[in-house]
Computed example of a mutant assay.
Amino acid sequence: MASSSTAWATNISSIASRIYFLLIILQIPLFRVPCRSGMCTTPLEVTSSQLIASEVFPAVVVKALFYPGACANQLVKNMTIPRWDDLLNIYNISSVKDASPVIDLQRLEVLAGSYFSVAGALVGLLRPGRMSMFGTLLVIWGLVKEGILGKPINTDPARAVYVYPTMLIALVCAFSCIKYDVKKIVRSNTNRPIAKPLESSSKSKLT
C-alpha cells in the first residue's frame, strides 16, 4: 500500500510540474503588472526584462527562453513563426536598459517570485520541488499587496494590476509539484521507538 501511495504521489507531482512548465515556457498570461518593458503578463516577461537590463545573462539565453512561447502565440494569432532576431522587439525588451529600475524595485515580490517561478519550472522537469510554490506565492502576495493594499499607489487604470484565472491553475500545479514521500513517512512511524518506563519507576511500583 505504501509503494502504491508513493507511486501515486510521484505521478501527481511529475504531471503537475510538466503542466507548470508549459504555463511558464508557453507564456500563458497569469497576471498583468507594470514592468520595465511596459506591461508584463507572465513571470518569464518579468524575469527576462530584468535579465536584459542587468546583463546577467547574454541575450541569446533570453531569446531561447522566449522562443517557444513566441512561436505558440504567433501560430495562434496569424499562423506565422517569429524571426529569431525580432524576439526582443516583439516583447519590447530591447529598450529596457533605458527604463527606470524603480518600476521593478516597487514590486520586489513579483520580481523575486517570477525568478523562482521560472527557475522552478525548469528545475521541476528534472526534480519537482518547492521552488515553484515559493515563486507563485510571492507573485500572488505582490499582486495582492498592490491590488488591495494599494502599495505602490497607481493612479492609471490602464496600468492597474490584474490576475487572470489561469493563476489558480498555476497555484494548484505549484502545490502539487511537492512530492510527499509516503514510504518514508510510513517507515518513520513504524521505526519510531516505543517509550519504556524507567527502571527506577518500575522498581518503586514493585516495592
Rank of each mutant, 00 (worst) to 15 (best):
L87C: 04
V110Q: 01
S114Y: 13
V96F: 04
I90F: 07
D98I: 09
R107H: 14
D85A: 14
E109C: 13
I90T: 13
W84A: 07
D86H: 11
F116C: 13
D104M: 06
S114L: 01
N92K: 05
Y115I: 01
A112W: 03
W84T: 08
F116E: 01
S95N: 11
Y115F: 15
V102N: 00
N92I: 00
A112G: 12
S100D: 15
S114Q: 09
S114W: 05
I93C: 08
L105T: 04
I90A: 08
D86C: 04
D104K: 03
L87K: 10
W84L: 05
W84Q: 07
G113T: 08
L87T: 15
Y115M: 05
A99P: 00
L111V: 11
I103N: 04
L88R: 12
E109M: 10
L111P: 06
D86P: 05
S114M: 07
S114R: 14
S100R: 07
L108W: 09
S100I: 02
L105N: 05
V110A: 01
S100N: 15
I93H: 09
D98T: 06
P101L: 08
I93M: 15
N89G: 13
L88C: 14
I93S: 08
L111F: 14
G113D: 11
I103M: 06
Y115R: 01
K97T: 06
W84M: 10
K97M: 01
I103V: 15
Y91S: 05
R107T: 10
D98A: 15
V96G: 03
A112E: 04
V110F: 05
N89W: 03
D98P: 00
S100P: 08
D104A: 13
F116T: 01
F116H: 02
N89P: 10
N92Q: 14
F116K: 01
D86W: 09
S94T: 06
L105V: 11
D98C: 04
N92D: 14
V96Y: 11
N89E: 15
Y115S: 03
L108H: 02
S114K: 06
P101N: 00
L108A: 14
F116Y: 05
D85M: 02
I93A: 03
S95I: 02
L111C: 09
G113L: 09
Y115E: 00
D86I: 03
S94A: 12
S95K: 11
E109L: 13
L105K: 12
V110G: 02
S100G: 02
A99Y: 03
L111Q: 02
S94W: 04
S94Y: 06
N92M: 02
P101W: 00
V102Q: 07
L105D: 03
K97V: 01
A112P: 08
D85R: 15
N89K: 10
L87I: 14
S95V: 11
S100F: 04
Y115V: 06
D86Q: 14
L87A: 05
Y115T: 01
L105W: 10
I93K: 00
V102F: 04
D104G: 03
V110R: 02
V102H: 02
V102A: 00
D98Y: 07
D98N: 05
S95A: 13
N89C: 05
E109F: 11
S114C: 04
D98V: 07
Q106T: 07
L111E: 01
P101M: 00
D86T: 14
S100W: 05
A112M: 10
P101T: 04
V96D: 06
K97I: 02
